Amino acid sequence: MIIRSKDKVQENGKNKPVWVLDTDALTVTHNTPDAAPSVTEFSSDHIKYHLHYSAEYRPTRLKKLVNDGTILSYLTELDRSVAEAIERQVGMMLENDTEYLRAVAVGDLAKARGLENMDRQIAREPVYAAMVYV
């Protein structure tokens, strides 16, 4: 889904929207009168899932964020917040994971990394439920 802002800028005799959100390409484009368009690409799963969820269930919110010109800061903050929340959750899980602590103590880094990755996958579910699918 592509959402274009109502506000327009003149470029080469054409009216272009100031902001364009592409929920499939995970990009936000900012057009200004005297400069090349600025395109910001997102690559995280949580942004992809949030945009697809929002396009289906909360399209009015997405349109408002694009029209207000706050979509880029909104997605940037969401990306950072979700990543930090997952890392906090993983840290708390690893502090109490005796198998992980034992693997680190004996220097079995492959096992420790595997357990950390497993905990990261487990941590995603509650974080996504609270922050992404809203």
Rank of each mutant, 00 (worst) to 15 (best):
Y128C: 03
D97F: 00
K111F: 01
T23Y: 06
K16V: 02
P33T: 11
Y57H: 15
H50K: 04
K8V: 06
A112M: 02
L94R: 09
V90T: 10
E95T: 06
T60V: 14
A25V: 07
Y53H: 14
T98G: 01
M118I: 04
A25F: 01
K64P: 03
G91V: 05
S73F: 00
I2G: 06
T70D: 14
K64C: 01
A35C: 08
R102T: 11
D108A: 07
E125Y: 01
Y128L: 00
M131E: 04
V90Q: 11
L115V: 08
H52D: 15
Q10M: 10
N67S: 00
D7V: 09
D119Y: 08
L115M: 07
V104E: 09
V106M: 15
Y53A: 06
I86R: 05
D108L: 02
P126F: 00
T27A: 11
T27P: 07
Y57C: 06
N31W: 13
D97S: 11
A105T: 11
A85Y: 07
V134Q: 08
S38D: 15
A129H: 03
T70H: 11
S54N: 04
A123M: 03
H46K: 02
A112Q: 06
E56F: 03
D22H: 12
A105V: 03
R61P: 07
R80S: 06
L109M: 14
K48M: 07
H52G: 11
T32P: 03
P33R: 05
E84M: 09
A36E: 15
V28P: 11
P126R: 03
A105P: 04
H50N: 07
D7I: 14
T70G: 15
V39R: 04
G114E: 12
K8H: 10
R102Q: 08
D97Y: 10
I3T: 02
A123C: 07
P17G: 08
A25D: 11
Y74T: 10
N96V: 07
Q89N: 05
K14T: 12
L109K: 10
Y100R: 00
F42Q: 14
L101F: 09
N12T: 09
H50Q: 09
R120G: 07
A105N: 11
G13E: 05
V82R: 00
E11N: 13
I122N: 10
D34L: 04
A25W: 05
N31M: 05
A112G: 08
N117K: 14
R88P: 02
M131Y: 02
T29K: 02
E125D: 04
D68K: 10
Y74D: 13
A25L: 11
T76L: 01
N12I: 06
M118N: 13
A25M: 11
T27M: 02
H52Q: 15
Y100A: 01
P17E: 10
E125L: 10
S38I: 12
A130S: 09
E99K: 13
A35T: 13
A130E: 11
K64H: 12
I86M: 03
K64S: 09
N12A: 13
A105W: 14
Y53D: 12
L94D: 14
M1K: 05
L75D: 07
A110C: 02
Y49G: 04
D24K: 14
